[in-house]
Design a protein around this nucleic acid. Structure first.
Length: 995
RNA sequence: GGGCAGGUGGCGAAAUUGGUAGACGCGCUAGGCUUAGGACCUAGUACCGCAAGGUGUUGGGAGUUCGAGUCUCCCCCUGCCCACCA
């Protein structure tokens, strides 16, 4: 028999498989179920590493086995081809990113083919291809049209020297990876996607998925839902005590929030006027302003509140009259000015020739409150007023859109100086002894400065500037030492106790979480405690007295209980309200609910933030938006998709933070699809996580030019039956693509609301030294070299054997171990010489056991034990020195998914005409799994004392008699009190106690 | 600090889920074939013993059980992810 020449064999069969197209997957196959096996597609970095082998070649074993077992298996691959490395290569080596990427793809494809993986290359997907990204853009626009994509000022990492935005991975230790400059935070207008709208569904829909619980758990933690309350703390520092509220078009003094807010304000000691404005269905701002001037008291201490069109009347009024504060509630507009067209009415209203400068000089401050959930008006429109008036812009949330609800807490907050906090412990409100704002607080700090009562503005300004400069790393280091500054001259009222409490700015409070402000309860929070100790603030322990049914000391964890009690004032009962009985007898949970209802509102917050998808990069999907001065951000028309990435001369960023595309005039200049006036294209590109959020859908229908994929074809395969990939994607790709799929589902574009039925995280292959492979460590294994030396089949066998695939662990690469895998294949090769015609009955039972175990283990992704069973079989064949033709065929079939090339060759040598990979998987006979004899362990008092061999059908009595006989000499004459028999395994004699 | 996953020979790991711990492979030792080599063959590879046999053993400690790597409680250690999230 000839030598096992892996090189010749592998090359030969790879060619034949490709030319015969045996791995081309039909959309459906008669009498077989479809199975969608997905593995994460690679980034075309230019070279395949061992990790890729582990990711592609090992699941290939499952793909091949499932096919032999009669499934129609889709096992596709493609390239996640957009991304930063191509652009870096372009800048560094003056290469064209497209050429660089496609050359890498061509090379890597060859490497992947060398694995013998059964990918269907006719379904290959490349995300950088215009035929693909056309649909990425189209899907983005569907989300945009649904309001799920919006622009927002967002902080980015900015390198002041390179004048460019940096990705998180380009920031190393707070410094620019390239030039070591200290990275700054810069605000830029960026596209965001409202993944937060889906937070609840992303958590709740995890439950039924067949995913490892640790992945579910980390997604839940990442989303970080916490239930708590929002509580407003009023600041009794307002000098204006008179409020005039102007109702909206179609409104009256009794409509919407007005009666409620009037009542609340009066409770706080304000006087409130609400005129019935003339001509309320077809209002005219000039007519109304005259009416107000005549009928209402307006002076420099008046707060003028205008709801919607009431805001227009207020502005007209303040052109001529001096007032105190102007509060615009909901973007002011009047659809009368635009023939009932709500959307157009905003731009018509804003451009109605108001003298904005005059209005500004006639009031002390302006607060513009907009509803982020406004059904008609985008935030950008609302913001325009704030900009023109130089006022404070507050992005609020109406209980009903445009603040048309009966109770609108945000309106009250905008009228009176108020600090809103989020807490998960409303039940400790009685112990809140100060408030803290985050330094970067978006607007609360502004509200305060406008109140004009701060006496240490400079000090606060310095502190805020300092914390802005601090990198996240520094803040982390500073964690032990709390810092902060008191707002001198400002105090807040604890709504539960009525006490005046101080207000601080401190960087231990995060602007991005909750409301960016907290109520500090030093007795029940370690951070607040540390801060209170440092600034010598009062600490009030909230105790729930046992007499009220809370149990001793309540179940509060208190960091101060065991601390020194100096400065600790123990509150008995929870304040007067408790004494008055309102909260008597409540459990902790009930107290939470009661206090929330009495002093605040129930609120759920999430750690998850909206997904920033703008990238100031060249090598990505252009965002298909056109910016028009009149119409705002407008979607590119479907017929104009894809917006193709233009060729550019140099890939350096533009300098003001925009992408290199901003330098391409022919790209930027365009016309508005709506009004046909001159307009500019968006020059940012999309985060590549969007590309990968739907690529698995494209595999089902990769050539479609009419849709991203036809529903019918998607239904053949979706949801993905098994998705195998790396643990590093748990909270990124896996969460983004789940969100994307849900968004597509809501748009009616896909039929499932979850994309992956089962997910599996694969382990990591480490270098031989047990460390992560890296060039700098010099422990990188080059798979090509090993394939050349030992063959692809050997590498496949070794990787499958290294450890269980279905556990996210890590295994060091062992060069000797690879040789062992090769040794095994050589032995199989040589066993080919022992094939003979007559049956070898000695092998029958073991062979059937092997069929069962290999099948079971592959299904469970325990390839290591499947191989060990094949080794046991091989050992026995060598011992017998013979194997029958049929048994040989069975062995080859069992081995075929693991070593596809060698088994194909041996199969051909055994004179079979068709490919082994199209054969049916062997079936075991349950009758033949049982050995003729079994070894039974004999134990005395649970200790192994011997063994007997009995025929496998021997009954209990026979086994017991035989075992007793063997053990009599050891029992020392003691009697047996109990006998335990485990059939086929052991017999245990329990002897009487020795006295 | 929080969450999750783990801890079994010299190494990678098995263990029908409470029933012979260490399958299978690597490495190592001895012997064989061979001029030599090992990607060859044979045997061995926890401890004591020539053997029969005995003893020990799954990070440590306790418990449940006829019987525990597996179940319960306490402690120790390692890895990964997140981290001033109110």
């Amino acid at each position: 028999m000839k030598r096992y020449d892996h090189k010749g064999i592998e090359r030969k069969w790879q060619k034949i498989w490709a030319s015969k197209g045996i791995f081309k997957t039909a959309d459906a196959k008669k009498n077989s179920d479809n199975f969608y096996l997905l593995t994460e597609f690679p980034y075309p970095s230019g070279n395949l590493h061992v990790g890729h082998w582990y990711a592609f070649a090992v699941p290939d074993i499952l793909a091949r086995a499932l096919r032999m077992q009669g499934k129609n298996v889709l096992y596709p691959i493609g390239f996640d081809a957009f991304g930063l490395p191509a652009e870096n290569a372009a800048i560094k080596n003056k290469l064209n990113p497209k050429k660089w990427t496609y050359a890498n793809i061509a090379y890597m494809k060859k490497q992947i083919v060398s694995m013998g993986a059964s990918f269907d290359w006719s379904r290959e997907v490349i995300t950088a291809d215009p035929t693909y990204y056309k649909w990425t853009q189209w899907q983005f626009l569907q989300l945009f049209k649904k309001g799920l994509a919006y622009q927002k000022e967002t902080a980015v990492n900015w390198c002041p020297k390179d004048k460019t935005v940096l990705a998180n991975e380009q920031v190393v230790g707070g410094k620019c990876e390239r030039c070591d400059s200290i990275v700054e935070q810069k605000m830029m207008l960026q596209w965001n996607i409202k993944i937060t709208d889906y937070a609840d569904r992303l958590i709740d829909d995890l439950e039924p998925l067949d995913w490892p619980k640790e992945i579910k758990e980390s997604q839940r933690n990442w989303i970080g839902r916490s239930e708590g309350a929002e509580i407003d703390f009023r600041l009794p520092i307002d000098t204006m005590k008179h409020v005039v509220i102007l109702h909206s078009r179609g409104g009256t003094p009794d409509s919407d929030f007005i009666p409620w807010v009037k009542d609340e304000l009066e409770k706080l000691g304000y006087t409130v006027e609400v005129p019935m404005l003339p001509n309320n269905t077809e209002p005219d701002d000039i007519e109304q302003s005259k009416y107000i001037a005549k009928n209402c008291t307006i002076d420099e201490n008046t707060i003028i509140v205008g709801h919607s069109s009431g805001g227009l009347a207020a502005m007209r009024l303040l052109e001529k009259t001096k007032g105190g504060r102007l509060v615009l509630v909901g973007t002011p507009h009047n659809s009368v000015f635009a023939d009932g067209k709500e959307r157009a009415s905003v731009s018509r209203s804003i451009n109605r020739g108001y003298d904005y400068r005059k209005i500004c000089s006639n009031v002390r401050d302006v607060i513009a409150l907009y509803d982020s959930g406004d059904p008609i008006i985008p935030l950008s429109d609302g913001k325009a007023y704030a900009e023109k008036l130089g006022g404070i812009y507050i992005e609020g949330k109406g209980t009903i859109g445009h603040f048309n609800g009966d109770k609108e807490p945000d309106v009250l907050m905008a009228i009176t100086p108020t600090l809103r906090v989020f807490t998960t412990r409303p039940d400790t409100l009685f112990g809140a002894t100060y408030l803290v704002l985050a330094p970067e607080h978006p607007w609360i700090a502004l509200v305060l400065t406008h109140c004009g009562l701060l006496t240490n503005e400079d000090e606060i300004g310095r502190y805020i500037a300092l914390s802005k400069r601090k990198t996240e790393l520094e803040r982390l280091v500073d964690q032990k030492e709390k810092t902060g500054v008191k707002l001198d001259g400002v105090e807040a009222i604890n709504p539960a106790t009525g006490e005046k409490i101080p207000v601080f700015v401190a960087d231990y409070v995060l602007a991005t979480y909750g409301t960016g402000a907290i109520m500090a309860v030093p007795a029940h929070d370690e951070r607040d405690f540390a801060f209170a100790k440092k600034f010598d603030l009062s600490i009030k322990n909230v105790i729930r007295p046992a007499t009220l049914g809370f149990g001793p000391g309540g179940n509060y964890r208190s960091p101060t209980i065991n601390e020194s009690h100096e400065n600790v004032h123990v509150y008995s009962g929870i304040g007067e309200l408790m004494d008055s009985g309102e909260f008597n007898g409540l459990s902790g949970q009930a107290a939470k609910i009661a206090i929330t209802e009495r002093f605040g509102r129930k609120k759920t917050t999430y750690k998850l933030r909206d997904w920033i998808v703008s990238r100031q990069r060249y090598w990505g999907v252009p965002i298909p938006i056109i910016h028009c001065k009149k119409c705002g951000a407008v979607a590119v028309l479907d017929k104009d998709l894809p917006v193709k990435l233009p060729e550019v001369k140099d890939y350096l960023p533009e300098g003001s933070g925009k992408s290199p595309l901003a330098k391409v005039k022919t790209f930027v200049d365009t016309v508005c699809p709506k009004c046909c006036s001159k307009a500019m294209r968006e020059t940012d590109t999309l985060d590549t996580f969007i590309d990968s959020s739907w690529h698995f859908l494209r595999y089902t229908d990769p050539k479609n030019t009419k849709e991203f994929a036809s529903k019918k074809k998607m239904m053949n395969w979706m949801p993905v039956d098994l998705y195998s990939g790396g643990a590093e994607h748990t909270t990124m790709h896996l969460l983004y693509s789940r969100f994307w799929h849900k968004a597509l589902f809501d748009l009616g574009l896909v039929d499932d609301h979850e994309p992956y039925r089962r997910r599996m995280n694969r382990s990591l292959i480490l270098g031989p030294d047990g460390q992560k492979m890296s060039k700098s460590r010099g422990n990188v294994i080059d798979p090509d070299a090993i394939v050349a030396q030992l063959g692809a089949d050997t590498v496949r066998m070794y990787l499958a054997f290294i450890g269980p695939y279905n556990e996210a662990s890590s295994y060091p690469w062992n060069p000797d171990g690879v040789v062992g895998a090769r040794r095994f294949l050589e032995r199989v090769w040589r066993v080919g010489e022992l094939v003979q015609k007559t049956d070898v009955s000695e092998l029958t039972t073991l062979l059937h056991k092997t069929i069962k175990k290999v099948g079971d283990d592959i299904a469970a992704m325990k390839f290591n034990t499947a191989i060990s069973q094949l080794m046991i079989l091989l050992n026995e064949i060598e011992k017998q020195k013979k194997i029958s033709t049929d048994q040989w065929a069975t062995l080859l079939k069992l081995l075929a998914p693991f070593a596809p090339h060698m088994t194909e060759e041996l199969w051909a040598l055994a004179k079979h005409k068709s490919s082994i990979h199209t054969q049916e998987w062997p079936v075991y006979d349950p009758q033949l799994l049982q050995d003729a004899t079994v070894t039974i362990m004999i134990q005395i008092n649970g200790k192994t004392r011997g063994e007997i061999i009995v025929s496998s059908d021997a009954d209990k009595a026979t086994v017991e008699a035989k075992a007793r006989e063997a053990m009599t000499s050891r029992m020392g004459g003691k009697s047996v009190t109990r006998t335990i028999v485990v059939p086929g395994r052991l017999i245990n004699f329990v002897l009487e106690e020795k006295l």
